[in-house]
Amino acid sequence: MTLYTIGILSERSGVPVKTIRYYSNRGLLPPAAISPAGYRLYSDQELQQLYRIVALRRLGASLKQIREFVHQDISLNDVLDRQLAAISQQVDTLHQLHRQIQGLQELQGNNDDADHVLHDFWSSDAVPLATAPRMVRRMVTPAIKSSSLVT
């Protein structure tokens, strides 16, 4: 069995050393062995595990979900089902925000008094309290970064 240092594992996988250490410290990627000098050593099995972890992170899985998957507490279908449900909820929230912005544009019309329009809009029943700007920013920012609009 070939063993790799964390630096070699990083080179082979394209994952930064710092990230590999983080996953290792969190119990997601324990080393296959520890060298006499105290270095973490990884085999091809851990390399495959790292690929699984990175793939699940790219799908938006939480570290908790990945840990459950790695420890075989949940299946891949469970992780994917949870992600689909979360994404569906985010899409619904974004559609609601889209409708609200369109409504605000209609309210604005030719009115130059932005404060008045915003006050009327936010004090109306059209805006549920659950649509918090911070929540929307967390959902929208990754989509904007990955879109072709950002160069």
Rank of each mutant, 00 (worst) to 15 (best):
D120H: 10
L97A: 14
S88K: 15
A143N: 05
V91E: 11
D115P: 00
L129N: 10
D113T: 01
A126Q: 12
I87S: 07
P133H: 10
Q83A: 06
D115Q: 11
K145H: 06
A86S: 07
D113S: 08
S88M: 03
T141P: 01
Q90D: 13
H116V: 05
P133Q: 13
A114P: 00
A126I: 00
V117H: 03
D115T: 07
G109Y: 04
H119M: 11
M139C: 04
V136P: 02
Q102V: 06
R134F: 07
A132D: 15
L129W: 02
A130M: 05
L129Y: 07
S88T: 10
W122E: 09
M135C: 01
M135R: 13
L118R: 08
S124E: 04
M135G: 13
L129D: 13
L118W: 07
P133A: 09
L104Y: 05
Q83C: 01
V127T: 06
D120A: 12
Q96Y: 06
Q105M: 07
T131I: 15
H98Q: 15
D112S: 13
I144F: 07
A85L: 08
D113V: 03
H95R: 13
T93H: 12
A132K: 14
H116L: 10
V127Q: 08
D112K: 12
S123K: 06
P142F: 05
M139G: 07
H119L: 12
Q105P: 00
W122F: 02
D92S: 13
A126T: 01
H119A: 12
D115L: 10
R134G: 11
D113C: 05
Q90C: 01
S123W: 03
R99W: 05
L94Y: 03
I87W: 03
H116G: 02
V117G: 04
D92H: 10
D115F: 01
H98S: 11
D125I: 03
R134E: 14
G109R: 04
L129E: 14
L107G: 03
M135I: 02
Q100I: 12
Q96S: 14
A85D: 14
L118H: 05
A114N: 06
D92F: 01
S88L: 08
T141S: 08
Q108F: 00
T93V: 02
M139L: 08
D113F: 04
V117D: 06
D125Q: 08
K145Q: 12
I144P: 00
R82L: 12
Q96V: 00
V140T: 09
R99I: 00
V117A: 03
V91S: 04
A130G: 10
P142T: 10
V136L: 15
